[in-house]
C-alpha cells in the first residue's frame, strides 16, 4: 500500500492549506477528518485542500468534505479543493459535490476566494 500522508501549512491571511497524498478511503479518511477538526478547534476555517497527490477517493473521503463545509461556512470560512485528478473529480461529480464545492487548479485563485481579496 502506498504511504498516506497529510501535511498542513499556514498561508497568509488566515488561510491554511492541507496537502493529502495517497488513497483517501474508508481506512484513511479518519486521519483527514481529525486534521480538519484540529484546525477548526484552532479557529482555522479557511481551508485549501490540495488533492494533486490523491490517487483515489471513495465516499468515506468525500464524506469528510460534506461533514466539514457547513461548519467552515458558518464561521466565515470555506473549503476549496485544488488540483484533483480526473478520477477524484469524477467522484465529486457523481455525488453532486462539484456544484457545492469550489474546485480549481490554481492556488492563488483559491486564496482570493477565501479572503475575498
Amino acid at each position: 500500500m502506498g504511504d498516506f500522508q497529510i501535511n498542513t501549512q499556514k498561508l497568509s491571511e488566515g488561510v491554511t492549506s492541507i496537502s493529502i497524498k495517497g488513497f483517501l478511503d474508508a481506512y484513511t479518511y479518519s486521519e483527514f477528518e481529525q486534521t480538519i477538526n484540529n484546525l477548526f478547534n484552532q479557529k482555522q476555517y479557511k481551508l485549501v485542500v490540495d488533492m494533486s497527490n490523491v490517487d483515489y477517493i471513495s465516499s468515506a473521503g468525500a464524506g469528510v468534505f460534506i461533514g466539514a463545509i457547513g461548519l467552515a461556512q458558518e464561521n466565515n470560512g470555506n473549503i476549496i479543493i485544488i488540483r484533483p485528478k480526473p478520477g477524484v473529480k469524477e467522484v465529486f461529480d457523481l455525488l453532486g459535490l462539484s456544484q457545492i464545492f469550489t474546485i480549481t487548479n490554481n492556488l492563488e485563485s483559491a486564496i482570493k476566494t477565501l479572503t475575498g481579496k
Binding site: A26, S58, S59, A60, A62, G63, V64, I66, G67, A68, I69, G70, L71, V91, L94, L95, G96, L97, I100
Partner: peptide, 22 residues
Amino acid sequence: DIAKSIKSGTKGGLGIFLMKQI
C-alpha cells in the same frame, strides 16, 4: 440528501448511493 447532510454535518448512505448509481 446532500444538502441536509451538509447542514447537519452527517454523511450516511453515500457509498451505497454511489454503488447503485454506477
